[in-house]
Structure formats: C-alpha cells, structure tokens
C-alpha cells in the first residue's frame, strides 16, 4: 500500500512533467528558429538536423553577415541591408503612428463613454458599433482601400498605412480603456470639478495619470498589432512604405529558401514582441479577450 504522502508526491511530479512538456512543446519552434539563425549554411537544413549548439554544430554569425546587419568586408551579403533597414523603419513609424492616433482619439472616446450618458444612441450601442469595426474580416476593407488609395495617392505611404491600421486599433483602445476608466472612482473627478476644472482638465489631470499603466499596456498592444499585421501591409505597400513582415513574407516565393537568413529576420520580427510580453504579461490575457477576462 502506497502511503498518502508518496502518492501526493507522485502526483506533484506528474503535474510538473506535464507542465514542462507543454512548455517545451510551446518553446521548441521558437528555439529552432533561434538556433537556425546562428548556423552556417552547412549546418542548417541538413539531415539529421542539428539541435544543440557547441555540441552538434559551431554557432556562426554567417546569417547576420549575409543579411547585412553585421558588416564584414570578406563576405558579400545576399540581401540588401538598406532595404531591410528601410522596412524596419517603416514598420516602426507605422506602428507608433497608428498607436498615437488610436490612443489619443480612443482614450477620449473611452472616457466619454465611461463617464457620460448619451441619450439618442445609448452608450452601449455606440460601444458595440465601435467594437464591431474590429471584428470585421479585414478583406472587406482591403479591397475598397486598394481602389480608394490608388485614387487618393495614399498607396505605399506611411500615413496611408497608419490610417488603415488605426481602423483596427482604435476600437481596441476604446474598448479596453473604457474598462480602465470605469475602475477609477468618480469622486476624484467630482472634487476636481468643484475646484473649477473643466471635463477635459479633469480627464487630463486626474484620470489620465491614474490610468497610465493601462494606457501603456494598451499602447504596447496596438504597437504589436500593427507591427505583426500582414494583409493590409502586403496590399497597400510595396516599396517605399513596405513593412518588415511584408518583406520577409516575400523572401521565398520563387527562389530557394535561405533558412538561416530568414531565421535571423524572424528573430528581429519577434524581438519587440518578446520585450512586450516580459513587460506587460499581466495585461495580455485581458487585452486578447478585449477586457472580458483578466
């Protein structure tokens, strides 16, 4: 007869094994990209595959020189570093631009909906109208954008992309920030109002500073959404304003895949995402469920 204590310990061990197994399964693909980015072409994509650096293969910066991010006069890169840097810059500008527009417009609207009562159209209806804009399949918008952008000269421009990404980011900001503002006690603003503050002043001086953590997390979310987005970017940009994911997505069509180079670029793509997760992990579930679950 196994004692109760041993049974308990066995159960705990099993649970940890299960937890570690799913974590390894989750992390392995990311790990694989990571090691591939530090392989020589001879070590990448061979059979049997090489898993362990230093033991099975010697880590190399070949890929980083090949994409031109590490300068080396002895190795002529396959890729043009100027175009990579250009797309990285475009992605950053578009992501930050869209975040600024969405957060400024969106947090005001969220505050309006959280604190005031609208009569003709009820608050709930306005909020759901705003949210519905995020739920649309983007292809319904991409086709008319393609036509209109061509006419209006917005094709392949930063502001064109910022306008497009804001349509998805703005509803997100409104929905999430509305939840944050509701959590702030009304009394603070009321006493500020008595002291002679206007609604805008109360918002700026009392509410905004209090909701700064939420605002930061929401901004980080919209930045990552925009950074990751592909469908709008691939349709509405091609050269000057081309985004980084669009560049990477086009790398293998037609030519043989240089997996070590691609892996290096994939690491660049997920680096901001990784920083975001470590900084804001508390908010991620709330963000992805639109504040319904925390």
């Amino acid at each position: 007869m196994v004692s109760r204590r041993t049974r308990r310990q066995l159960e705990t061990a099993l649970i940890y094994i299960a937890l570690i197994t799913i974590t390894v399964a989750t992390i392995f693909p990311v790990y694989w990209t990571f090691v591939t980015a530090f392989k020589d072409p001879r070590d990448a994509f061979t059979y049997p595959p090489k898993y362990l650096p230093y033991i099975q293969f010697k880590p190399s910066l070949f890929a980083w020189r090949d994409v031109g991010l590490i300068k080396d006069p002895t190795q002529r890169g396959t890729h043009d570093p100027a175009s990579i840097l250009n797309t990285l810059r475009n992605s950053v500008v578009i992501a930050i631009g869209s975040t600024i527009v969405s957060v400024v417009l969106g947090s005001l609207a969220a505050y309006g909906l959280a604190r005031f009562e609208f009569r003709r159209w009820k608050n709930k209806d306005i909020a759901f109208f705003i949210l519905s804009q995020r739920m649309l399949p983007p292809i319904v918008l991409v086709i008319p954008y393609f036509i209109l952008y061509n006419r209006l000269g917005l094709m392949d421009t930063w502001h064109g992309m910022i306008i497009a990404h804001t349509v998805a980011n703005l509803p997100f900001v409104v929905w999430i920030m509305r939840g944050f503002f509701r959590g702030i006690p009304k009394e603070l603003e009321e006493s500020a109002r008595i002291d002679g503050c206007s609604h805008f002043q109360a918002f700026r001086k009392i509410v905004l500073p209090l909701s700064l953590p939420g605002l930061a997390a929401t901004s980080a979310f919209t930045t990552v959404f925009s950074w990751n987005e592909l469908l709008f970017a691939i349709t509405l940009t091609f050269k000057r304003a081309q985004t980084f994911p669009t560049l990477v997505a086009g790398l293998t069509h037609g030519s043989a895949a240089l997996w070590w180079d691609i892996s290096a670029m994939l690491l660049l793509a997920i680096l901001p995402v990784f920083i975001f997760i470590t900084l804001f992990q508390r908010y991620i579930v709330a963000g992805l469920t639109l504040g319904a679950l925390k």
Partner: peptide, 17 residues
C-alpha cells in the same frame, strides 16, 4: 510568460518557423 509567446508572435514568423 513562456506560454504567451506563440499567441503574440508575428504571424509571418510563425508560418516560416
């Protein structure tokens, strides 16, 4: 933290990986 990486990762990176 480790489990959150896939859901936020750039889709292009997920596809290639």
């Amino acid at each position: 933290v480790l489990l959150m990486l896939p859901m936020m990762a750039t889709p292009v990176a997920v596809g290639y990986t």
